[in-house]
């Protein structure tokens, strides 16, 4: 199994690399294959993110959406695949990429304040052997204000609500001032105020010409918030502008029979927007 995945991966790499990596795209992935304990989770996934657009990554549970982000960022080992950030390998383009992990990926009991966590977004810029200065803290305060959290700057992160924690993570990514934003389920389980704050941030990023990819669960809001969509289920199923790609056919292909009536309602909405 492992062997097969390896050779298969290598074959893909030889066949498909660079040729499919668009040097102009802010974020392009080609032939990404990732396995956990020899079980492939993602097979030959490819995607070229359109610059300055907001892309939703959708797919059923276990489809490999988070794995797609983590694998392309090099956070988990991949069997094969190429990732380009404006044509450069990811390791040379760290400053251009900001990542918002799932809220559940860290221990919120950690002795840190909201401001501490946001300041972490600046650590790369501050550099080794140096401490954050007054200006870094001011910038972190500004980022907290952008997500409506300035009043909670000195609060220990464990005493924030889930939505507030999510906004802290968002502010940390904003502090990075990157060109590409990858967000893993920022809307998961948040309150209405946080949802609005996230949408405002997404609009702001778009107005600044940033490229944003968001792992998203709620199919109904895909046509409302996003301009592009990437369907994943163990690999790329379909991708494109919401107007063209967000179709019943693609949804069926991605979710199989698991599509609920409420989710199909989203299609009507999309159709209405198109019309």
């Amino acid at each position: 199994m492992d062997q097969a995945a390896n050779t298969g991966g290598r074959g893909l790499k030889e066949a498909g690399q660079s040729a499919t990596l668009d040097p102009k795209s802010p974020f392009s992935v080609s032939g990404l294959t990732v396995a956990y304990d020899r079980k492939p989770v993602l097979w030959n996934a490819s995607f070229t993110a359109p610059e300055g657009e907001l892309t939703a990554i959708v797919g059923p549970n276990g489809a490999g959406k988070s794995t797609f982000l983590k694998g392309s960022l090099g956070l988990i080992p991949k069997l094969s695949g190429e990732v380009g950030v404006f044509g450069r390998p990811i390791d040379e383009a760290r400053r251009d990429i900001a990542y918002v992990p799932q809220r559940s990926s860290v221990d919120w009991d950690f002795p840190a304040t909201a401001l501490d966590v946001v300041t972490m977004g600046l650590y790369r810029r501050i550099g080794w052997l140096r401490w954050p200065g007054r200006r870094d803290k001011e910038r972190a305060h500004e980022m907290l204000a952008l997500v409506g959290m300035e009043a909670f700057a000195d609060r220990q992160i464990g005493q924030l609500s889930g939505g507030q924690q999510q906004r802290v993570f968002l502010a940390r990514a904003l502090a990075q001032d990157a060109r590409v934003y990858l967000m893993d389920e920022p809307f998961a389980g948040v309150d209405a105020a946080t949802e609005r704050a996230i949408v405002d941030v997404l609009k702001k990023l778009l107005s600044e010409g940033k490229t944003v990819l968001v792992v998203h669960h709620d199919l109904e809001t895909v046509p409302v918030y996003f301009s592009h969509v990437l369907f994943l289920n163990g690999g790329t199923v379909a991708a494109g502008p919401v107007a063209d790609a967000f179709t019943a056919e693609n949804l069926q292909k991605t979710y199989g029979g698991r599509l609920a009536a409420t989710q199909l309602a989203a299609l009507d909405e999309a159709a209405a927007m198109k019309g």
Partner: peptide, 21 residues
């Protein structure tokens, strides 16, 4: 010397890696 890196890596190692730390 490594206070902020120790703090970051203890809190969110994956995020640290995306920063190149």
């Amino acid at each position: 010397a490594f206070y902020k890196e120790l703090k970051l890596v203890s809190f969110d190692p994956l995020f640290a890696d995306t920063l190149g730390i």
